[in-house]
Design a protein around this nucleic acid. Structure first.
Lengths: 112, 112
DNA sequence: TTTATATACATAAGAAAACTATGTATATAA
DNA sequence: TTATATACATAGTTTTCTTATGTATATAAA
Protein backbone atom coordinates (compact mmCIF):
# COMPACT_ATOMS: atom_id res chain seq x y z
CA UNK A 1 0.00 0.00 0.00
CA UNK A 2 2.97 2.27 0.17
CA UNK A 3 6.53 2.85 -0.86
CA UNK A 4 7.32 1.02 2.36
CA UNK A 5 5.96 -2.54 2.19
CA UNK A 6 6.28 -2.84 5.95
CA UNK A 7 3.16 -0.75 6.49
CA UNK A 8 1.23 -3.99 6.03
CA UNK A 9 -1.35 -4.71 8.63
CA UNK A 10 -1.95 -1.14 9.73
CA UNK A 11 -4.22 0.05 6.93
CA UNK A 12 -7.46 -0.53 8.81
CA UNK A 13 -6.09 1.33 11.81
CA UNK A 14 -5.06 4.26 9.65
CA UNK A 15 -8.49 4.49 8.01
CA UNK A 16 -10.31 4.29 11.33
CA UNK A 17 -8.11 6.96 12.87
CA UNK A 18 -8.63 9.32 9.92
CA UNK A 19 -12.38 8.91 10.23
CA UNK A 20 -12.22 9.58 13.94
CA UNK A 21 -10.47 12.87 13.26
CA UNK A 22 -12.41 13.91 10.17
CA UNK A 23 -15.90 12.61 10.75
CA UNK A 24 -16.78 11.97 7.11
CA UNK A 25 -14.46 11.10 4.28
CA UNK A 26 -14.70 9.47 0.86
CA UNK A 27 -12.18 7.03 -0.56
CA UNK A 28 -10.24 9.30 -2.84
CA UNK A 29 -10.07 11.91 -0.09
CA UNK A 30 -8.47 9.32 2.19
CA UNK A 31 -5.74 8.55 -0.34
CA UNK A 32 -4.97 12.26 -0.66
CA UNK A 33 -4.98 12.82 3.09
CA UNK A 34 -2.58 9.92 3.69
CA UNK A 35 -0.31 11.26 0.99
CA UNK A 36 -0.42 14.75 2.47
CA UNK A 37 0.12 13.74 6.09
CA UNK A 38 2.97 11.40 5.20
CA UNK A 39 4.65 14.04 3.05
CA UNK A 40 4.20 11.97 -0.08
CA UNK A 41 5.88 8.93 1.41
CA UNK A 42 2.81 6.73 1.76
CA UNK A 43 0.80 6.19 -1.40
CA UNK A 44 -2.40 4.34 -0.74
CA UNK A 45 -3.51 2.40 -3.81
CA UNK A 46 -7.13 1.73 -4.70
CA UNK A 47 -6.55 -2.01 -4.74
CA UNK A 48 -5.71 -1.84 -1.05
CA UNK A 49 -8.07 0.94 0.03
CA UNK A 50 -11.45 -0.04 -1.39
CA UNK A 51 -11.42 -3.67 -0.25
CA UNK A 52 -10.34 -2.45 3.20
CA UNK A 53 -13.22 0.05 3.34
CA UNK A 54 -15.70 -2.61 2.23
CA UNK A 55 -14.45 -4.97 4.90
CA UNK A 56 -14.69 -2.35 7.64
CA UNK A 57 -18.24 -1.63 6.53
CA UNK A 58 -19.12 -5.34 6.43
CA UNK A 59 -17.72 -5.67 9.94
CA UNK A 60 -20.04 -2.91 11.12
CA UNK A 61 -17.34 -0.35 11.89
CA UNK A 62 -18.27 2.05 9.09
CA UNK A 63 -21.48 3.27 7.49
CA UNK A 64 -21.82 4.99 4.14
CA UNK A 65 -23.83 7.45 2.09
CA UNK A 66 -23.29 8.79 -1.40
CA UNK A 67 -23.25 12.25 -2.90
CA UNK A 68 -23.03 13.49 -6.44
CA UNK A 69 -20.48 16.25 -6.93
CA UNK A 70 -19.70 17.54 -10.44
CA UNK A 71 -21.58 14.57 -11.91
CA UNK A 72 -19.26 12.18 -10.11
CA UNK A 73 -20.25 9.82 -7.32
CA UNK A 74 -18.66 10.18 -3.94
CA UNK A 75 -19.13 7.46 -1.36
CA UNK A 76 -18.71 8.89 2.10
CA UNK A 77 -17.73 6.80 5.11
CA UNK A 78 -18.22 7.55 8.79
CA UNK A 79 -17.63 5.60 11.99
CA UNK A 80 -20.46 3.66 13.58
CA UNK A 81 -20.63 3.37 17.36
CA UNK A 82 -18.85 0.03 17.14
CA UNK A 83 -16.32 1.67 14.86
CA UNK A 84 -15.63 4.32 17.46
CA UNK A 85 -14.75 1.66 20.02
CA UNK A 86 -12.68 -0.16 17.44
CA UNK A 87 -10.48 2.90 16.88
CA UNK A 88 -9.54 2.98 20.54
CA UNK A 89 -8.79 -0.72 20.53
CA UNK A 90 -6.75 -0.57 17.32
CA UNK A 91 -4.75 2.41 18.54
CA UNK A 92 -3.88 0.61 21.76
CA UNK A 93 -2.80 -2.34 19.68
CA UNK A 94 -0.72 -0.10 17.43
CA UNK A 95 1.05 1.49 20.39
CA UNK A 96 1.88 -1.94 21.80
CA UNK A 97 3.07 -3.06 18.40
CA UNK A 98 5.39 -0.10 17.93
CA UNK A 99 6.71 -0.53 21.45
CA UNK A 100 7.40 -4.23 20.96
CA UNK A 101 9.04 -3.66 17.61
CA UNK A 102 11.28 -0.93 18.99
CA UNK A 103 12.23 -3.21 21.86
CA UNK A 104 13.00 -6.18 19.64
CA UNK A 105 14.98 -4.09 17.15
CA UNK A 106 16.69 -2.09 19.86
CA UNK A 107 15.32 1.16 18.45
CA UNK A 108 14.26 2.69 21.72
CA UNK A 109 15.36 6.34 21.72
CA UNK A 110 16.35 6.33 25.41
CA UNK A 111 15.39 4.88 28.76
CA UNK A 112 13.01 7.09 30.67
CA UNK B 1 3.31 -14.85 15.13
CA UNK B 2 2.42 -13.10 18.31
CA UNK B 3 -0.28 -11.99 20.67
CA UNK B 4 -0.26 -8.84 18.55
CA UNK B 5 -1.33 -9.68 14.99
CA UNK B 6 0.06 -6.37 13.80
CA UNK B 7 3.62 -7.59 14.12
CA UNK B 8 3.13 -8.97 10.62
CA UNK B 9 5.80 -8.07 8.16
CA UNK B 10 8.58 -7.51 10.67
CA UNK B 11 9.56 -11.08 11.39
CA UNK B 12 12.45 -11.17 8.92
CA UNK B 13 13.80 -7.92 10.33
CA UNK B 14 13.60 -9.26 13.88
CA UNK B 15 15.43 -12.46 12.95
CA UNK B 16 18.15 -10.60 11.07
CA UNK B 17 18.67 -8.16 13.94
CA UNK B 18 18.92 -10.97 16.50
CA UNK B 19 21.54 -12.69 14.38
CA UNK B 20 23.48 -9.47 14.04
CA UNK B 21 23.62 -9.17 17.82
CA UNK B 22 24.14 -12.84 18.65
CA UNK B 23 26.26 -14.18 15.80
CA UNK B 24 24.88 -17.74 15.84
CA UNK B 25 21.44 -18.89 16.89
CA UNK B 26 19.20 -21.90 16.27
CA UNK B 27 15.48 -21.71 15.70
CA UNK B 28 14.20 -22.67 19.09
CA UNK B 29 16.70 -20.30 20.68
CA UNK B 30 15.26 -17.46 18.60
CA UNK B 31 11.73 -18.15 19.84
CA UNK B 32 12.97 -18.08 23.44
CA UNK B 33 14.98 -14.92 22.93
CA UNK B 34 12.03 -13.09 21.39
CA UNK B 35 9.84 -14.21 24.26
CA UNK B 36 12.44 -13.07 26.79
CA UNK B 37 13.17 -9.69 25.22
CA UNK B 38 9.48 -8.90 24.76
CA UNK B 39 8.69 -9.89 28.34
CA UNK B 40 6.49 -12.76 27.19
CA UNK B 41 4.38 -10.57 24.95
CA UNK B 42 5.59 -11.85 21.61
CA UNK B 43 5.29 -15.58 21.07
CA UNK B 44 6.92 -16.68 17.86
CA UNK B 45 5.30 -19.81 16.47
CA UNK B 46 7.15 -22.47 14.49
CA UNK B 47 4.77 -22.11 11.56
CA UNK B 48 6.00 -18.56 11.13
CA UNK B 49 9.61 -18.95 12.19
CA UNK B 50 10.87 -21.92 10.21
CA UNK B 51 9.51 -20.88 6.81
CA UNK B 52 10.95 -17.41 7.44
CA UNK B 53 14.38 -18.86 8.26
CA UNK B 54 14.28 -21.05 5.16
CA UNK B 55 13.37 -18.10 3.01
CA UNK B 56 16.17 -15.94 4.43
CA UNK B 57 18.59 -18.78 3.74
CA UNK B 58 17.25 -19.27 0.19
CA UNK B 59 17.68 -15.54 -0.39
CA UNK B 60 21.33 -15.81 0.62
CA UNK B 61 21.07 -13.78 3.82
CA UNK B 62 21.71 -16.66 6.19
CA UNK B 63 23.93 -19.74 6.20
CA UNK B 64 23.54 -22.80 8.41
CA UNK B 65 25.34 -25.64 10.14
CA UNK B 66 24.01 -28.32 12.44
CA UNK B 67 25.11 -29.62 15.81
CA UNK B 68 23.93 -32.54 17.90
CA UNK B 69 23.32 -31.65 21.54
CA UNK B 70 21.81 -34.23 23.91
CA UNK B 71 20.95 -36.41 20.93
CA UNK B 72 18.86 -33.63 19.43
CA UNK B 73 19.65 -31.78 16.23
CA UNK B 74 20.22 -28.07 16.37
CA UNK B 75 20.34 -26.08 13.15
CA UNK B 76 22.36 -22.95 13.65
CA UNK B 77 21.97 -19.84 11.53
CA UNK B 78 24.38 -16.99 10.99
CA UNK B 79 24.42 -13.93 8.74
CA UNK B 80 26.18 -14.05 5.40
CA UNK B 81 27.88 -10.93 4.08
CA UNK B 82 24.76 -10.12 2.08
CA UNK B 83 22.74 -10.74 5.22
CA UNK B 84 24.81 -8.20 7.11
CA UNK B 85 23.97 -5.54 4.56
CA UNK B 86 20.35 -6.60 4.60
CA UNK B 87 20.09 -5.97 8.35
CA UNK B 88 21.13 -2.36 7.87
CA UNK B 89 18.65 -1.93 5.07
CA UNK B 90 15.79 -3.58 6.95
CA UNK B 91 16.45 -1.51 10.07
CA UNK B 92 16.35 1.70 8.07
CA UNK B 93 13.07 0.52 6.59
CA UNK B 94 11.72 -0.33 10.03
CA UNK B 95 12.61 3.10 11.39
CA UNK B 96 10.85 4.77 8.47
CA UNK B 97 7.86 2.49 8.95
CA UNK B 98 7.51 3.29 12.66
CA UNK B 99 7.93 6.98 11.94
CA UNK B 100 5.26 6.97 9.22
CA UNK B 101 2.86 4.96 11.35
CA UNK B 102 3.31 7.30 14.31
CA UNK B 103 2.72 10.26 12.04
CA UNK B 104 -0.40 8.81 10.46
CA UNK B 105 -1.85 7.70 13.78
CA UNK B 106 -0.79 10.88 15.54
CA UNK B 107 1.25 8.91 18.06
CA UNK B 108 4.30 11.13 18.01
CA UNK B 109 5.40 11.67 21.64
CA UNK B 110 6.31 15.33 21.08
CA UNK B 111 7.68 17.72 18.50
CA UNK B 112 11.44 18.11 18.71
C1' DT C 1 -9.64 18.06 -31.11
C1' DT C 2 -7.41 14.72 -29.00
C1' DT C 3 -4.68 13.44 -25.30
C1' DA C 4 -3.18 13.42 -20.63
C1' DT C 5 -4.14 14.11 -15.93
C1' DA C 6 -7.13 14.35 -12.06
C1' DT C 7 -11.14 12.78 -9.84
C1' DA C 8 -13.94 8.71 -8.26
C1' DC C 9 -15.52 4.24 -7.89
C1' DA C 10 -14.70 -1.06 -8.25
C1' DT C 11 -12.97 -5.95 -8.82
C1' DA C 12 -9.98 -9.90 -10.20
C1' DA C 13 -5.67 -12.47 -10.22
C1' DG C 14 -1.72 -13.42 -7.92
C1' DA C 15 1.92 -13.15 -4.29
C1' DA C 16 3.56 -12.76 0.39
C1' DA C 17 3.26 -13.70 5.01
C1' DA C 18 1.19 -15.45 8.78
C1' DC C 19 -1.81 -18.87 11.51
C1' DT C 20 -3.37 -23.41 12.72
C1' DA C 21 -2.68 -27.97 12.67
C1' DT C 22 -0.01 -31.78 12.31
C1' DG C 23 4.06 -34.77 12.26
C1' DT C 24 8.67 -36.74 13.97
C1' DA C 25 11.83 -37.39 17.84
C1' DT C 26 14.43 -37.08 22.39
C1' DA C 27 14.94 -35.66 27.43
C1' DT C 28 13.17 -34.89 31.77
C1' DA C 29 10.00 -33.95 35.45
C1' DA C 30 5.60 -35.20 37.62
C1' DT D 1 3.15 -43.19 31.92
C1' DT D 2 1.98 -38.85 31.05
C1' DA D 3 3.00 -34.08 30.45
C1' DT D 4 6.22 -30.61 29.34
C1' DA D 5 10.31 -28.92 27.20
C1' DT D 6 13.43 -29.15 23.50
C1' DA D 7 14.08 -29.17 18.31
C1' DC D 8 13.06 -29.67 13.73
C1' DA D 9 9.61 -29.48 9.63
C1' DT D 10 5.59 -29.01 6.32
C1' DA D 11 0.70 -28.64 4.56
C1' DG D 12 -3.58 -26.23 4.24
C1' DT D 13 -5.87 -22.10 4.83
C1' DT D 14 -6.64 -17.18 5.53
C1' DT D 15 -5.50 -12.36 5.50
C1' DT D 16 -3.63 -8.62 3.31
C1' DC D 17 -1.43 -6.41 -0.08
C1' DT D 18 0.17 -5.49 -5.16
C1' DT D 19 -0.65 -5.19 -9.87
C1' DA D 20 -3.66 -4.85 -13.43
C1' DT D 21 -7.77 -3.74 -15.32
C1' DG D 22 -12.31 -1.58 -16.03
C1' DT D 23 -15.94 2.27 -16.02
C1' DA D 24 -16.89 7.18 -16.06
C1' DT D 25 -16.60 12.42 -15.79
C1' DA D 26 -14.00 17.05 -15.73
C1' DT D 27 -10.41 19.84 -17.12
C1' DA D 28 -6.03 21.41 -18.79
C1' DA D 29 -2.55 20.92 -22.36
C1' DA D 30 -0.93 20.00 -26.97
Amino acid sequence: MSTNPLLKGSLQTIILKLLEDNDEMYGYEITQKVKEVSDGEVMLTEGALYPALHKLEADGFLETFTQIVDNRVRKYYRLTERGGKEVTSKLTEARAFIDQLQTLLNLKPAAK
